[in-house]
Nucleic acid binder design. Structure first.
Length: 281
DNA sequence: CGCGGATCCTGCCTGC
DNA sequence: TGCAGGCAGGATCCGC
């Protein structure tokens, strides 16, 4: 479940191992991996051949490699189980290898491996430095262009629950189920709290919690609990041990000792402390 | 038009 | 042991 910190770990790995290298060839091993690349697999591989990787960039959970020549990028979304691995070209092909990129220098491949196939990759134009398909995505809270007043205004204009809003990438990007639960616990907010009832100071507190939790996860190299999320070298992060509520049903809240509850939410789970995070009436 | 629910997909885990 | 069902969930699509 890669969210912003996990994707940032991957981006850093790609910046280190892939930038400055020229793509020799690309191979699509599963068509679903490029389903958002409308012109299809042959066009995808043709667009990549001979291009140099100029930089690795990210907004929210999306990352992309800027390419030489036309203003285009190889963009990736990891979905639930996607991995971008930098592995020796001679290493055995992974069971769930979807796209393989080889380089002119004969160095390690870039491989997109994705068990559950929710992730995807595509070649896309850059518009103002951002991939065209994600122009509707809001900046993430670590970007300089993230506007707190604008976020607060748009949040309060919504008629929905706070957790739904946090997961809405057009309002704030990079937050997924794990860090939404963690930030809400830190800010002592119940997930069902109506957005229009939040005060500006409370919104700022929540935003601070989102940043604190994500920055902490990034320092730990990301979160992993089923080994599906790994950095480009296949290594897992250590943030799981720092989680306060996510996945901790019936375990004591570290603030008050009350057992953490799990509730169904949007066809998945929401974890919270029944005492610290009172359900709105 | 805004909101909320269904859907996609595979492997692991649990319970019968 | 084997099998069925639950669970994980980001983004997109669709209906109200």
């Amino acid at each position: 479940m890669p969210e912003l910190p996990e994707v940032e770990v991957v981006r850093r790995g790609l910046a280190q191992w892939v930038t400055g290298r020229e793509i020799a060839s690309a191979e699509v091993l599963h068509p679903r991996a490029i389903r958002r690349h409308v012109p299809g697999a042959d066009e995808f591989t043709a667009r990549l051949k001979g291009r140099e990787v100029l930089s690795a960039e990210r907004r929210g959970k999306y990352l992309w490699l800027r390419l030489s020549g036309a203003e285009e990028a190889l963009m990736a979304h990891l979905g639930m189980s996607g991995q971008l691995l930098v592995v020796d070209q001679d290493s055995p092909l992974e069971k769930h290898l979807r796209v393989r990129v080889r380089f002119e220098d004969g160095g390690p491949d870039l491989r997109f491996v994705d068990q559950r196939t929710f992730g995807h990759v595509m070649v896309t134009p850059l518009v103002g430095g951002v991939p065209e398909p994600i122009s509707h995505i809001a900046p993430d809270p670590f970007e300089a262009v993230f506007d707190e007043a604008e976020f607060a205004r748009r949040l309060r204009a919504r008629h929905t629950e706070i957790k739904r809003a946090l997961l809405d990438q057009s309002l704030i990007s990079g937050v997924g189920n794990i860090y939404a639960d963690e930030a809400l616990w830190m800010a002592r907010l119940h997930w069902a709290r109506p957005t229009h009832t939040l005060t500006r100071p409370k919104i700022d507190e929540l935003l601070g919690a989102v940043r604190t939790v994500m920055a902490s996860a990034l320092r730990a190299g990301g979160t992993s609990f089923d080994s599906l999320y790994v950095n480009v070298n296949g290594e897992s992060g250590y943030f799981e041990r720092s989680l306060e509520v996510y996945g901790r049903r019936d375990l004591p809240c570290s603030r008050c000792g009350t057992p953490i509850r799990r509730e169904p939410f949007m066809n998945r789970s929401s974890y919270s402390c029944p005492r610290c995070q009172r359900r709105p009436r």
